[in-house]
Nucleic acid binder design. Structure first.
Lengths: 116, 116
DNA sequence: TTAGTTGGTATACTTTAGTATATCGGTAAC
DNA sequence: GTTACCGATATACTAAAGTATACCAACTAA
């Protein structure tokens, strides 16, 4: 990689944007939760059962953060008792490409490290 | 995002590859170190000075891990005293696209969260 | 002779992420 | 009336990541 290369410059210019992306994508549970919701699980307990190993504390915390990040929405239905449904936003769908890229690089990387 | 969607399936199929990529990319220092090396810094102290805030302990640890990941190589020169040079491998260059994607998603994401 | 550079290591600490487990008020089914 | 489900919260803990600071032997330049 040459010095002052255009791509190098593009890479260096903003690691804070990279950090923003990683805040979402690098946590142990956030992607798994979104995937569980994409798979049709809307309720707290459904998501918890789908993932299997997440504690209610973490699920609660991560759901709140995902909502703050506008990746999911929490809807309260006026039933008795109230029921609550989580759904993924269109913004969450934009994660798909990023996750694919991470995955593909991960596969390539493993081949390089393990000597193909 | 519909259930049983092809893209959804592709996303779910291997979160472990995503984890492999994140092992490299989500640490506080690894990318910064590679960027410092790309910028022409080859020696331990040069890299440390370039980054500015990294402790020698972390730099040492991260350099070792980057070498294990085959992203950099450590060369020992038979001078007096011995001098050591780090350089990035071609494999490290493949990170460029991934980092660009993370960065672009991060920028998009910030716009969404802050309401454009 | 003394101060500084090099490529680190050692020890101890804090901070962040994640785990484990018990509990809650309300409701519904048996 | 008791047991279980729902959507969580509370408290306490462990583990992983990162920080702070001092130090080292070998060498060099003033």
């Amino acid at each position: 990689m040459p010095v002052n290369n255009k791509e190098h410059h593009a890479c260096k210019k903003s690691l804070s944007a990279v950090r923003d992306a990683l805040d979402v994508v690098s946590s142990k549970w956030k992607l798994q939760i979104i995937i569980a919701i994409w798979a049709g699980n809307k309720r707290f307990k459904d998501i918890q059962r789908q993932i299997g190993s997440i504690s209610p504390r973490m699920l609660s915390k991560e759901l709140k953060e995902l909502e703050e990040h506008k990746l999911i929405v929490r809807q309260v239905y006026d039933t008795l008792p109230v029921s609550i449904e989580y759904s993924a936003t269109p913004h969450a769908e934009t994660l798909q490409d990023l996750v694919d890229n991470l995955q593909n690089w991960g596969i390539k990387h493993r081949k390089v490290v393990l000597g193909k």
